[in-house]
Design a protein around this nucleic acid. Structure first.
Lengths: 146, 146
DNA sequence: TCTTCCTGTCGATGTCCTCCACGTGTGCAC
DNA sequence: GTGCACACGTGGAGGACATCGACAGGAAGA
């Protein structure tokens, strides 16, 4: 990937609503040229979409946790992501190497909600869980460096 | 937070570049009214900013890992986030309850880069590390449900 | 050299953002 | 009830921006 594309992506990570005009000024290109590049980045799948950065406390989900899961029956089909896809509290699911098979990142409102969520995860995916509570988040989703 | 604000946030999580006109149509409000609400959400800090969703493989960072860190000297000042803030490979830093003190999410290009990164983390923060390699990411940063 | 492809600039058009003036409903003091 | 303040909505006007097409220049290969 070219250097200028990398710069465009880095700029958009900092401000996803930046106008093409401003992107052009920051990269030394014309508006149309930037527009074309962004469209190509979208087509190639480098840019998958745009999103908003939300304060989770403010939207009523102040409690974050990581849940590592392990199948109870090691011979069972490994389809936990599908089984858990419908659980809205799960923000991310990573297949990992190591003792456990997946790490989930979840957000809930209160400890009681977490308890309830764990029960749902265990029963719907037939797994054991190991939960790590997040106390604070110094930083998250930091933008790439140019 | 109001129901309609929640809907606006949910819509923007799905498409952070959605126009105020379209947001208005989806929420049954006029363009100006939506605009006002979004501005208030930004002022209150509910909306912290806008960003782009990037395919990390496409930008040359296909290897993701979680690194749990623990201070070597338990009596030392607990300022790891500050010490590590300058390391660009670290995308997120969570202070967690449990045996370890922080979980870092990192992205690098190759295993050798991870080795190098781990050395830098250990020396600059004076910590021991436990690394969990991500094999695949079924989903990540899923939008809230309305 | 000529062709082709890629990537850029420039200009025109329609859409959207942005702001301002104004209307409406609610709660409160009088 | 009346008057007022306030929060929140609508609608319109203007300027900025996105979007598209036509065209220019440079690089690589025949």
């Amino acid at each position: 990937m070219e250097d200028i594309d990398r710069k465009i992506v880095a700029l958009l990570m900092r401000d996803g609503r930046m106008s093409y005009t401003d992107l052009g000024k920051s990269t030394g290109l014309s508006t149309s040229a930037v527009h074309q590049r962004v469209r190509r980045l979208e087509e190639r799948g480098v840019i998958r979409g745009y999103s908003v950065v939300v304060d989770h406390e403010a939207v009523g989900l102040p409690l974050t946790a990581f849940i590592s899961i392990k199948p109870i029956d090691p011979s069972q089909a490994d389809d936990s992501p599908d089984r858990l896809a419908g659980v809205p509290e799960i923000e991310a699911c990573y297949s990992v190497a190591g003792d456990e098979s997946y790490i989930l990142k979840v957000r809930v409102g209160r400890p009681a909600d977490l308890e309830d969520l764990l029960a749902r995860i265990r029963s719907s995916a037939n797994v054991t869980t190991r939960t790590t509570i997040v106390l604070s988040t110094p930083y998250e989703n930091r933008p790439m460096t140019a």
